[in-house]
Nucleic acid binder design. Structure first.
Lengths: 199, 199, 199, 199
DNA sequence: GAATAAGCGAGACGGTACGTCCAGTCTTCTT
DNA sequence: AAGAAGACTGGACGTACCGTCTCGCTTATTC
């Protein structure tokens, strides 16, 4: 059986869109991890992918949108929020997982730069919210809603706000690194908001 | 307000450094408010200020650093954290003031873009932290430390974490606007963290 | 006149070659008159004709060849050189007719641009000579040959050279417009070459 | 005496305009002769000259204008029309010199392509006329005017028209090569127009 | 009080990337 | 089986800024 390896046809004619998209996304992801958003250029992505700039402009609305897609292709994180019945434990686990993602791998820098770029790239901004932040926020909110039903949390709180106080606090230290992101920090976040800081 | 008075054409010769700096900063501030970071260009600042690009490069290490300086010149916010003895009221007042700054004026967008640009501009990043975020963080931490001494707050909490849970949550909604920044939100932030959300 | 009628969308399937050719040529002629060679693009012709670029490439070897064909379709000049027996009158009439063609309608600009493009498009160059200039040259040469036989012209002259001195002179003023093309000019051309300029 | 050889400074800073212009023109001339107008690209000229495209756009209004300048730099023909007192001999000599220029060297092709490009490049068109064709036309006209004064030519002729019948005829065969450009042709041109072709 | 040094404005330069246009090639779908 | 539709590479276009560098001035400092 002669492994007819994927030919990766080149030259001028038409190629299956899927093949091109795949190569472009791979190149985008690699470049993003290698150089960060500062060196992330449509020109460089095109060169790396062996594709034409025109093709990229046809499929992606902005530099940032391409970067996000490239990153997503590279990382493809699982989207889950296990419900053990103990909301405090679950929140702690999730926040810890998030801080580990931010600090443990190169993902922290990339996410920070994507959020940074989204401040002046509305295409990236909406793409990031729709495909990244909003779904994650929804999962956490849902888990807390269930906990309220179970009577584990007060029923007069807004879970959306709690999300900002847990994950938003982590983003804060990521984007404005006055203070470091540690496990202690992650645990304190949950602890504070669960028990309150009032004496 | 900032009466862009006639460019004061002074010929090409040497001018006092102070005068030049002043005009450059004014121009930078105006341009930042007018076009945002996206259109904020050293070239445009130089043209607006009637200054040479060389001069700007001599005094500011990066585009972002210049933008921050220009913004600071334009807004020059007061730095204070009144201590009434009631920590909950003080925190609420401060967080509300902050959200009003972010939403009420054009400052929100500028701050967001500055933080965004700081992700790929280390000069801007450190300048922002040293001159903007760190001092404000210190004030809030100090206020909470006093409240701990007064016995109003538990003594096993880390005020630094609380800062992230209050101000960081606001930054979260500013930078990733999945949810809006409202007065209700601001008040809930303080309330949640003071009493805790556990039933 | 040329009523650009609605593109006749016919779906994607096969169409009779003749129909396609006709529509492409019509589109080419219109576009040429409308925008000149500068804006004459295979892409635009295809769009105007509702045809595929591939089809055009299959039938015409170059942009210029298509333009020439389109022009010929649009103008379809009569090819005649009436012989009244008076060679001087006939030459004057023909040269005048030519200058009127060049100046009176938009044809002058188009012919000039076709000749211009033919300098870097060998397909266009040979097509233009074979289908346009050579036949006209032959007619004039033939008329003069007859006049030589009739004894109206000297028998030691080369009619080919005279063609260059009459029509070539007109092309000269068309392509390098230092001097205008007037009736006076046309008449002088014939007069000079008939009688000579020597005292 | 350490021969401080001309450094041909490179790098980013400002270079004397004259030096850059010189190198660009040299590159333009070389490229024009090497590839003709078809391959004559601002991009290639810039690369060859080690200059920035922006610089070229700043100094030359169009591709054609640059090509003409480059050609002129490369060839720098003498501009003269010797007056021996015998107008027929002088015209013959000049026309022959012109045909030799067109056929003997690579100049013919280049001139043809420049005239060709000038049909869709108004900057080139006016530059060519002002700097190339008009002065040459004026010289020939002046020589004939003197001959008229000397009584060698009829005083009712327009020298401008004669120019078209001599040089224009040559351009005709250059641009629409139905017939070749030979010495015989050149001599016939003058002969025909001097004596007339009428029997 | 005149010479000198320190900057400054102006702006050109090499570069990099942008976003666009078209050429020419190739494939898939449709009639 | 031919044509439409249209995606693809490639290359040039003209533009915008970047950061660097040189001029010619003008002012402030020094002799």
């Amino acid at each position: 059986m002669t492994e007819t390896q994927p030919p990766i046809r080149r030259g001028r004619g038409r190629r299956p869109a899927a093949e091109v998209r795949e190569q472009v996304l791979a190149a985008a992801g690699e470049l993003l991890l290698a150089e960060g958003m500062a060196g992330f250029t449509i020109e460089k992505v095109a060169a790396r992918a062996g594709a034409s700039r025109m093709t990229i402009y046809k499929w992606w609305p902005s530099r940032g949108a391409l970067a996000l897609d490239g990153y997503a292709t590279k990382v493809r994180t699982v989207l889950e929020f296990p419900d053990t019945g103990d909301i405090e434990a679950d929140l702690t686990a999730q926040v810890l997982a998030f801080t580990h993602l931010l600090t443990g791998t190169g993902a922290g820098k990339v996410i920070a730069e994507l959020i940074g770029a989204s401040q002046t790239d509305s295409e990236l901004s909406s793409a990031f919210r729709e495909r990244y932040s909003a779904p994650r926020r929804a999962l956490a909110v849902e888990a807390m809603a269930k906990a309220i039903e179970r009577g584990q949390l007060r029923d007069d709180i807004d879970p959306q706000v709690v999300v900002d106080q847990l994950w938003g606090a982590c983003y804060h230290r990521l984007l404005i690194p006055d203070e470091p992101i540690t496990d202690e920090f992650a645990k304190s976040l949950v602890h504070n908001v669960m028990l309150g800081i009032k004496r």
